[in-house]
Nucleic acid binder design. Sequence first.
DNA 1: GATGAATGAGAATTCATTCAT
DNA 2: TATGAATGAATTCTCATTCAT
Lengths: 197, 197, 197, 197
Amino acid sequence: MPKIVDKKAMRREIIKASLKAFLKYGFHKTTINQIAQEAKIAKGTFYLYFSSKEILISAITSLHFKKLRDEFIAKEYFQTLDELFLYIGNALLISEEESKFIPIFFEAFGSQFSSKLFMAEYKKLFDDIGCFYEENFELLIQNNQISKKINPDTLGRVLVSMIDGIVLHRGFFRIDETQYSKMVEDAIALFKVGLCK
Amino acid sequence: MPKIVDKKAMRREIIKASLKAFLKYGFHKTTINQIAQEAKIAKGTFYLYFSSKEILISAITSLHFKKLRDEFIAKEYFQTLDELFLYIGNALLISEEESKFIPIFFEAFGSQFSSKLFMAEYKKLFDDIGCFYEENFELLIQNNQISKKINPDTLGRVLVSMIDGIVLHRGFFRIDETQYSKMVEDAIALFKVGLCK
Amino acid sequence: MPKIVDKKAMRREIIKASLKAFLKYGFHKTTINQIAQEAKIAKGTFYLYFSSKEILISAITSLHFKKLRDEFIAKEYFQTLDELFLYIGNALLISEEESKFIPIFFEAFGSQFSSKLFMAEYKKLFDDIGCFYEENFELLIQNNQISKKINPDTLGRVLVSMIDGIVLHRGFFRIDETQYSKMVEDAIALFKVGLCK
Amino acid sequence: MPKIVDKKAMRREIIKASLKAFLKYGFHKTTINQIAQEAKIAKGTFYLYFSSKEILISAITSLHFKKLRDEFIAKEYFQTLDELFLYIGNALLISEEESKFIPIFFEAFGSQFSSKLFMAEYKKLFDDIGCFYEENFELLIQNNQISKKINPDTLGRVLVSMIDGIVLHRGFFRIDETQYSKMVEDAIALFKVGLCK
DNA sequence: GATGAATGAGAATTCATTCAT
DNA sequence: TATGAATGAATTCTCATTCAT
């Protein structure tokens, strides 16, 4: 009788452990051994759940993408500009803990920037978020909430980039919570005014 | 008499070759051998000019920082908002060629995100650019060019992040030249309106 | 369950193999590869037992020192000159096999002659042996076994040097067993007479 | 017209420089570059005077052997035991400076302990010194200076070993001048008594 | 003769992956 | 299933030697 093991749970455990290890040692310097140790399993056991390091990374990547998608694309459209930016503001509230992973993900993704497949998926994520903004903009134009002069499509994509920039700087430069909230506030105020007039 | 060699020129050649190699193979997978091959020199010759791979990377890093600083901090302050954004717009005009290196730099920097020293320098660069914007904002407020309601300090730093976000997306997602110009235009328009009112 | 391995036994095996390899190729020309081959393990396996070549050498060194100490310092003092020299004579009986390693050790130690720590330990070994002789001399003087005119302290240290010289020549110059025994005999006779009168 | 260079003088200069370098860096860690620097010539110039590192070492070795031979084998036989040991005592007077080279030579020679040719020459040197002592012993027996019971041949060779041991310990363990003279004195006294009776 | 830049074979070490237990 | 010992390809770096100037 084989031991009954929740394969998915174990995979999740290993992913969690590997993230911890990445934080400790840096992504590229982290070895399978260290991940296994962090997960309190043997090196060989790791391979029962992930057939290679590559596979682990792509699993982490998928999770990351999924999370971003969930956080930045709302299930429904917003009726007012304030609602939209309330949502965006919330999405921007990234905890200290989470923000630490941002450079890690960059380091991890770095080695995949040559992979067409990876980049296509990554690009699609941001294009989709941009699209979501665009659709909201269109609706808000109809609702007379924002200026008719703006180009929803371009601006949607620009907005994503700019928001991403803010998030990245938060993570990369360890901008502290209070300064960061001010920055988010100011950014949103700027966006709002910019979109109205 | 031995061959007369321009040491600095050779170092530049090797840096150029290594960037090419990074583009080809990805930063982390590139070996000294490949760099040497790209530079059409022997492995040992590489070490005559850079005492280690680490040193090469830090040389490239320094160059990169220097370039960013030169591009994004003007020698003098601007008298009008239009002038300021004309300057920013020019800085944002990144060629196809250059933009390809953006992911490369991220991959390269990735392994240094744990280095306090590196991050301090990197952060300083963006803080300095932010400062430059802040000082311009203060002047423009005095000149009645922009709204007195804005906080120059926070907004300066936010602006950098947002602009960086746009640049990064350009590089990461190979946004093509025409779409990118539109994005830059829209972003600048948004900024201008946001700052005036 | 993984293979059960006696880690200490394996370390001993590798040390043995490395000594064989040193004999074959000379200490400095012996590579980790050759040691691994001699031990019939893979290069990587070597590093499971010794974290570096340096560590291997220091392990061998320790063993060597320990052995010399055990061989040349008796657990108790001797009551008569004959007993003392019987002991010394036995210590001097070095097998053909063992004697081959003497030059090896010198080659190995050679690179450590700059290391203060190493030399201090090495010197201490011989000083301790010298001390042991000295203490025996003092006792033998009290027992009227040897002349009161000798200086136990200096002579103890001299004796070590001289005995070491004999051993070294045995090892370096492959002096054969029969000639060597005669030499040891003559040396002991000389010492005895020299000490009595 | 080629520059007139005293080839032999230059070779001597390089040997001197290499010895200095060996003292500084240890024999095995010394590179041709360092030797060249010490000799204030270019690396390539070194090869004009010694076709390889190996050749340099064998030149040094030869010199060393020659010196030892000159120091330890007198041009004529001694008529009394006192004269013999006066001579030996003088040979044993090794300056601080010289003694520093002893470990260096061992390190250097170490890599040649596998070379049959080298070892044969090295052995011959000590055998010759042993022979010289032997012949002196025979003469001294005839002169009734020393006991008829001793075996001149074995004892000659033993004496060399023992003397060599004293010299080696002086060099290896940096025994200071004053202790060393006492040791030499004691050793000679021991020898004399041992040989007479 | 003299120079020192260029070369590349060779060494130590790491680590993802395999596999016997 | 779980383990961790074993493996060896791959990488960085060194240094004796060559050779164009």
